[in-house]
Design a protein around this nucleic acid. Structure first.
Lengths: 132, 132
DNA sequence: CGCATTACTATCCTTTAGGTACTCACTATA
DNA sequence: TATAGTGAGTACCTAAAGGATAGTAATGCG
């Protein structure tokens, strides 16, 4: 298994086949955005920002541009005054729904285990310090 | 669907039920680490860092501590000289395997669509600019 | 004695994210 | 005519996270 001195050094993309898709789908703020667009349908910029609430317009713009470029979101601009821009999830974006469901399923089963692990860890930290 | 003037403003955790699990499982470098531990079994710090190659020791330490705290990884310290520390994936960590497989499956089907979307986007960018 | 080994820290620098204010083009209102 | 308001962002600055490089401790080996 461990190959002794031979270093099988590869870049993260090679070392982990899912790394590229993680970059696309799970970079910061993308899941709340995709979720909102999938759940509540086509929405305007302000609607999205109100729904997600803690995202700033700068970052929302950045993420939407990225999602548009990756083909997960479709942006429609209406040249009115004031301007109206609508975002909706694409078919490609919708194809992530089962994956997200799977993730939600894992969370419903295991999230509390993570919580418990954290509490245990923090507790033994306080008591027994870390003897390295 | 859209509820007019009522703003349903909630924090991202509320707006997107999978946000907490994304923070745990898909924060930077965690997937390559978990993948390596799952594929190649118990490993020492240097083995991991050689396998992932582009990660720096500082960040690898940070992420491993986080994964240990979350109960996804188990750390074993042997007080020898030079020291020997081994990391292995926990049962909870292994429970992510089907999810990762699902992600790999999605990637094998859709990753090239994303690539194509990017190329199309960049091409029309160069030509037609963006009429906002 | 000096070098190698391992599992990290320490320090510095760059990139990314977050906060707040402002613009643009026009329309409705005073 | 002057003013305020609107939606979709930008501009600018600070804070946090990530990355690069070097160093540390304890000991065996040549």
């Amino acid at each position: 298994m461990t190959s002794g001195t031979s270093r099988a050094a590869v870049d993260p993309e090679q070392a982990c086949p899912i790394a590229p898709v993680v970059d696309i789908v799970f970079s910061r703020w993308t899941t709340p955005i995709l979720w909102a667009l999938n759940e509540f349908g086509r929405q305007r910029f302000v609607e999205l920002s109100r729904r997600i609430a803690t995202i700033t317009p700068k970052v929302l713009t950045q993420r939407l541009r990225q999602l548009e470029r990756d083909g997960l979101v479709v942006r429609t601009y209406h040249a009115e005054v004031p301007p109206r821009v609508e975002y909706e999830i694409s078919e490609l974006g919708r194809s992530l729904a089962p994956l997200f469901a799977h993730l939600a399923e894992w969370a419903s089963v295991n999230l509390e285990k993570v919580e418990r692990a954290r509490q245990d860890h923090d507790a033994t930290e306080r008591v027994g310090a870390r003897r390295n």
